[in-house]
Nucleic acid binder design. Structure first.
Lengths: 98, 98
DNA sequence: ACGATAGGCAAGTATCGACTTGCCTATCAA
DNA sequence: TTGATAGGCAAGTCGATACTTGCCTATCGT
């Protein structure tokens, strides 16, 4: 479960996709594609982005809703909120023992 | 930079190593090895763990100090604190812009 | 000095993961 | 209905990466 989230975040392109969905939620595959190409200059195929979105969805970071021939992608940030606290459990008292 | 952190966290064994260092800071390679084998039942070689530690160190998540023939590994959690806020920047006001 | 302990280096394997290519389905507009 | 738009499926390629094996160096105890 958390494994899927970390694996999803491991790829820089997927992190960019999350950035773009943070900027504007509910985009379609083609919109995300366009943004990645124009704003970030990466040249990848539509299929590549589609597969990235599938990984993000499997990780619970993105949910999709279909309307007619459009499929909109929405960001879900809940899985991100607790994955890191696991090692940050010591609130601010970083116990350095010199 | 953040790329190294996410890549480091992508592997479940490395996350376990962080867990063990959270439990007890300043362990040696052999100690970490022993914990992974006995507590988590994974059978991997010393080299494997050593390479994982190298990845964690390259990501800035672990620092090492040498004393005689021992090399102690210390956890650094700072890189973890800000990597996720990037998508959590909207505090609780999920701003859907209509 | 010698053996044992703690760790490092380097090459090889083998699996996984990102990406492509080619074709297929579904919805909408004319 | 036809063509254009939005997306899906399935295999195949290729580089990254997790792991092993074998040998080498350094420090400590006796």
């Amino acid at each position: 479960m958390t494994d899927d989230v970390f694996k999803a975040l491991a790829d820089p392109t997927r992190r960019l996709i999350l950035d773009e969905l943070t900027d504007r939620n509910g985009q379609t595959l083609f919109e995300i594609c366009g943004r990645l190409v124009t704003k970030h200059g990466l040249g990848l195929s539509r299929q590549a982005v589609s597969q990235h979105l599938a990984v993000l969805e499997a990780a619970g970071l993105v949910s999709t809703r279909r309307e007619g021939r459009y499929k909109f992608h929405d960001l879900h940030t809940e899985p991100l909120e607790h994955i890191v606290t696991r090692w940050l459990a010591q609130p601010d008292q970083e116990g350095r023992t010199p």
